[in-house]
Design a protein around this nucleic acid. Structure first.
Length: 406
RNA sequence: GGGUCGGUAGCGAAGUGGUCAAACGCAGCAGACUGUAAAUCUGCCGUCUCAGGACUUCGAAGGUUCAAAUCCUUCCCGGCCCA
């Protein structure tokens, strides 16, 4: 479409030097655009558009699933559009019921601010916050009175709310639904009214909330916005990416750890990851797709993917290093380079050290590891619970290493 | 407000006076296998241990009993039905 595609081949693909085309903006890593033709028209107009992404600062560690909408935001920013970043300072205190089958704990104001700082610090790896407009929704939501709220609420029906899957689920499982949870999408929708944007970006789990915004904008006579939802990517094991499943790749994971996690991703997610969380050109991703179909070892592509992701967050050097280290440790069963060094007293117990250094969660746990032959010093399996500390590389299981020095 | 059912380990869920640290499933951990994996198989999966046991845990606090997750009392939290 544009000549930049050809040029890009010679450039390390993780550096997105070029702007994405309109087609790519509206399609790559995108789940759905509502309504499509409105989006096309607005983009075709060539005018800079106002768009926003809202987040509730819950204090969660960001993982690459969170990076998808952020990256989309950045793509639009690079294309010259006006990006607004909305901090759900008010909404966070209520808690989004989306995707929840449990009631959420509300947050305090102080906690919200603290959380946002943490968020910003992590998200800065993707988005340049100095170039976006940051707004807080307590500034308007906190000022609404009961009249306003009733007006807003009357645009929706209880049936619409109850149609949502998580509420149905809760009903069928006899879990509570707080009345305030119905208010949540309305508040978020009202954000759109205040910001009067051309469109909103969000994860696909936010579709309902964002649609409420469309309804309210019409109701309040504002401009019509369209909605762009990004794809939700699954965690390394193919289930929903979630802390409770421990299948997340976090933005601040150490290079080696991050690399290893990507390699552990289920094979059939490779292409999705490439599309959604890297800057690899789509042309290259198509080539990868063909290669997969023609029987290339998925590991090869996964390594490419892993290198790409680590480069994005830690730079090329770290990525190369992580790759080398990974091959050494896992493919050849060796030990990593950068093992943590731990000073230990000669003659002290090995078991105690393992617990103290967090390689096991309790003494009982450590004991089990000994019994199961998981404890090795310099590749010699140690089974005696009374064993003393020795100098060398201590390996517990496959992934936990420390270097013991006296 | 009334009635009723329920709150068990990270989650789900059995257990209704002793044989209960508590079945089972999921998740997790270790070992084998492998392409890091996945799948599969095996073992583990409260804490501490002088390895014989000891200690803490079944919403919370009291009580009955030789003995309580199991019985009683009060309280807290939730579901459902009725108002």
């Amino acid at each position: 479409m544009t000549p930049r595609r050809a040029l890009l081949r010679d450039v390390p693909s993780c550096y997105s030097l070029a702007m994405a085309s309109d087609t790519e903006l509206l399609n790559r890593a995108v789940e759905t655009v509502v309504p499509r033709d409105l989006a096309d028209d607005k983009l075709k107009s060539g005018k800079p558009l106002r768009l926003y992404l809202g987040i509730d600062p819950t204090g969660a560690k960001l993982h690459i699933g969170h990076s998808v909408p952020l990256r989309k935001l950045k793509a639009f920013q690079d294309a010259g559009h006006h990006v607004i970043f909305l901090v759900g300072s008010f909404t966070a205190m209520i808690g989004d019921p989306s995707g929840r089958d449990q009631l959420r704990e509300p947050l305090t104001k102080e906690k919200v601010e603290e959380n946002f700082q943490t968020y910003k610090q992590q998200a800065s790896k993707i988005l340049d916050f100095s170039k976006v407009e940051i707004v807080y929704n307590h500034e308007w939501l906190g000022k609404l009175n009961f009249h306003d709220i009733v007006k807003i609420a009357s645009s929706f029906t209880v049936q619409q709310m109850l149609d949502r899957e998580m509420f149905r689920k809760r009903i069928s499982e006899n879990h509570p639904i707080g009345v305030h949870e119905f208010l949540y999408p309305l508040m978020q929708g009202y954000d759109s009214v205040v910001l009067d944007v051309d469109f909103e970006v969000g994860g696909n789990d936010q579709l309902f909330n964002m649609l409420c915004g469309r309804t309210l904008q019409k109701e309040f006579g504002k401009r019509e916005k369209f909605i762009l939802t990004t794809r939700l990517i699954e965690g390394t094991d193919g289930r929903k990416m979630s802390k409770t499943y421990d299948n997340c790749i976090y933005l601040d994971d150490e290079p080696n750890d991050m690399y290893g996690k990507v390699l552990r991703v289920k094979d059939d997610l490779i292409l999705t990851y490439m599309e959604c969380v890297t800057d690899l050109p789509m042309t290259e991703i198509r080539v990868a797709e063909k290669a997969l179909k023609s029987g290339t070892n998925p590991k090869e592509l996964k390594m490419r993917l892993a290198r790409e992701i680590v480069t994005l967050y830690h730079g090329e050097k770290a990525a190369t290093e992580a790759e080398r280290s990974f091959q050494e440790v896992f493919s050849q069963g060796g030990t990593p380079e950068d093992v943590r060094e731990v000073r230990a007293g000669k003659g002290s117990g090995l078991l105690e050290l393992i617990v103290k250094e967090g390689l096991a969660s309790s003494k009982s746990d450590a004991r089990r590891l000994f019994e199961q032959g998981a404890v090795k010093i310099n590749d010699n399996v140690i089974t005696s619970l009374e064993a003393q500390v020795e100098e060398g590389i201590l390996k517990v299981g496959k992934r936990r290493f420390i270097k013991i020095i006296f």
